[in-house]
């Protein structure tokens, strides 16, 4: 492929005088608008600072389908702990079904949920094997649908306690108000 000399270019070889006249503003209002870079950069920097201040690396966790969390005001920050999700139909640990919510509701009696117990106990044993010199924190986070009845809440709570997780936390949506440090956060 041969290289050709470039052809005529606009504004050089072809003067387009009427355009130049319009742009430079002679004889009429210029069509070129000035953009104030100072205020634009100020605006962008303000947005960046605001977003950086509100940025949080934690606080977002994916919820299984069918769970609507309730909201609470006096909450504490989430921590890294085993998570049990309880929907209207089933109990899930790491996405794996570990019990049936309906059977607990039908029994209408606080009971130990065997599959959940075995799963949590397994997690506890694994932690103890991997960290023989560390104290086991015993924290489990329950992610429950707002409509789940109290018999399921109490059954899961009791099962977690039996499996060696006495500090049970309930995941909620945080609403206004200042966060308390302890008390409700005894599990730290």
């Amino acid at each position: 492929m041969t290289i050709h000399e470039p052809g005529k270019r606009l504004m050089h070889a072809i003067p387009l005088k009427f355009v130049q006249k319009k742009v430079s503003g002679h004889g009429g209002r210029s069509v070129a608008a000035e953009l104030s870079l100072t205020s634009m950069i100020d605006f962008l920097v303000t947005i960046v600072v605001f977003l950086l201040m509100t940025f949080s690396a934690s606080g977002e966790t994916s919820l299984p389908n069918g769970i609507t969390l309730p909201s609470a005001e006096h909450t504490i920050d989430l921590l890294d702990a085993p998570m049990v999700a309880i929907t209207a139909d089933q109990i899930l640990v790491n996405g794996q079904p570990m019990g049936n919510t309906r059977s607990v509701v039908e029994a209408n009696k606080v009971q130990k949920i065997e599959e959940l117990f075995n799963s949590l106990k397994g997690q506890r044993d694994v932690y103890k094997q991997l960290n023989p010199n560390k104290d086991f924190p015993g924290v489990v986070i329950l992610t429950m649908d707002a409509k789940v009845p109290a018999v399921v809440v109490k059954s899961v709570f009791q099962t977690a306690a039996f499996a060696g997780f006495p500090n049970v936390s309930f995941m909620v949506n945080k609403t206004g108000g200042k966060k308390p440090a302890g008390g409700g956060g005894g599990g730290e």
């Binding site: 306690a161 500090n167 936390s169 909620v172 599990g187």
Partner: peptide, 15 residues
């Protein structure tokens, strides 16, 4: 950005 903040509320089984 995370617009809905999740947190936890604690309960103690007192074992």
């Amino acid at each position: 950005a995370v617009w809905s903040q999740m947190a936890r509320i604690n309960a103690d089984a007192q074992v």
